[in-house]
Every structure is written in C-alpha cells, then in structure tokens.
C-alpha cells in the first residue's frame, strides 16, 4: 500500500484538541492540545502510560465524546458542532468499535450480536443474516453462529465483536485495548485478524495498547504522555 501523499485529506484530523474534565480544584486535562492526522488505510497504535489520555482521544475519534476545545475533522469536515443524532449516524455508517471487555449482548447468539448494527440501519432480516454470517466467516467463527457469548472463549468473543464491528463495512475500526483481556497466543490470533482486515480490506485501524508486541502489528505508533503526543513514528510491521 502506497504512503499517503502530502496534501491528501486525512480521514481523521485533530486540530489542537483539548479535553478537560471537571473544573476548579478537580480539573483534569485529559488532552492538552493534540494535533493528529490519520489517513485512509493506516494502521495506528496509540501507546502511553495509564491516564495519558489514550481512551479520551479514542472516544473523541469514535464520536462518543466531544472536545472541550479544538477541532475534530472527519474526512475534512469539522464535526465539532454536530448534535447527538448526527454523531450517532456518523458512528453507524463510518465507525466500528472493538472494546477491551468485548461488550457483546449477553444471552444473545453470536450471529444476532453481529446483526445488531444492521438492525438499527433497518436492513431486512434476510440480507442482515447473510451479511452477519459472512462477517462471522471472515473471523473464522461460522460454526459458532448460534452460540451465546457465555458459551464462547475470550478470543472467540473478541472475534465476534470484530465481526460486529466490520459487518457494516466501516471506514475506521477503533479498538481500545482489544487484547487487554486475552492471553498472548489469543492476542496474536486477534492481531493477525485485525492486520489482515487492514491489509486486505483497507480498513483504517486505530488501536490503543500497552503491549509493544501488539503495537508492533501497526505501521505507525503514536505515544501519549500527559495528554500530549510525545512521539509519532512509522515502523515496519511484524506480520506484514
């Protein structure tokens, strides 16, 4: 994949984004003026010590939260002033989420979990089921479609979550510590899957991790310290 040309519109762009929680004595500057540009097809790992603002940045990228000041541009369009409904629609059509804790609906089969984002898009049942099964096949779980989360291992649950994130064919996959609850071997399986999605389907991936060998799957590592970007480096991928 070619390096993004200079002057290309970044898919995700932060301009002096700051996020402040609380006020007065209790004020916490989670993000203290962050400039960041992520282009299409990139695979970015965000690292940094605990409390450095990684999750805060991810929530803003994921349109789950808004900056206190600064601008967030999605595909060149400032979206800072949009309302709750428009944020939801943006998430629905552009973004896929993978969480550390999997966040599957309990007592709901794998395929139904994967279908969920399509349900909210109003897709007819038949097409929805087809797409969900195809997404499950991509993560290698077509045989577990009818299993409920409680009947799946952690790695399998995370793969269902990835299927749910990609079933809508999002532009960006956002993953906050996706391997945080998994052992090393399972983590590798998950990262191979994410790497493949980035490489073969061109999905832009932004991932938070604490582990250097997980970050090694990314082409670029952004390091946060105290709500600022300390370093931003391109690197060779391990499994590429």
């Amino acid at each position: 994949m070619a390096e993004p040309a200079e002057g290309d519109t970044p898919l995700i762009e932060f301009r002096a984004v700051a996020k402040v929680y609380g006020s007065g004595e209790a004020e916490v500057r989670a993000l203290a003026g962050v400039d960041l540009a992520i282009h299409r097809h990139e695979f970015v790992a965000i690292m940094g010590p605990s409390g450095s603002g990684k999750s805060t940045a991810m929530n803003i990228i994921g349109c789950l939260d808004t900056p206190t000041s600064g601008d967030y541009l999605f595909d060149g369009i400032p979206i800072t002033g949009l309302d709750r409904r428009q944020y939801t629609l943006l998430r629905r059509h552009m973004l896929g989420f993978v969480f550390q804790g999997f966040n599957l609906l309990p007592r709901t089969s794998a395929v139904e979990n994967v279908e969920l984002p399509l349900v909210y898009r109003g897709m007819p049942q038949r097409e929805r089921r087809q797409r969900a099964l195809a997404a499950l096949a991509q993560v290698g779980l077509e045989r577990r479609a009818d299993h409920q989360p409680s009947q799946l291992s952690g790695g399998q649950q995370q793969r269902v979550a990835i299927a749910r994130a990609i079933v809508t064919e999002p532009a960006v996959l956002l993953a906050d510590e996706p391997t945080g609850n998994l052992d090393t071997r399972t983590s590798r399986e998950i990262m191979d899957l994410v790497g493949a999605l980035n490489r073969d389907r061109g999905i832009t991936v932004v991932m938070v991790t604490h582990e250097p060998d997980i970050a090694a799957y990314a082409k670029r590592v952004v390091r946060f310290v105290d709500g600022r970007i300390e370093s931003d480096e391109r690197q060779e991928q391990v499994a590429a």
């Binding site: 789950l64 966040n103 609906l105 909210y120």
Partner: peptide, 16 residues
Amino acid sequence: TREIGIRLAIGALEGQ
C-alpha cells in the same frame, strides 16, 4: 445500562 451503552455506541438512535 451496559447493553444500552453497546446499542448506542454501535449506532442506535435515541428514538430507537
């Protein structure tokens, strides 16, 4: 609450 959070995050509108 968590279930509602998941639904909202993956694109459920308030009305839904």
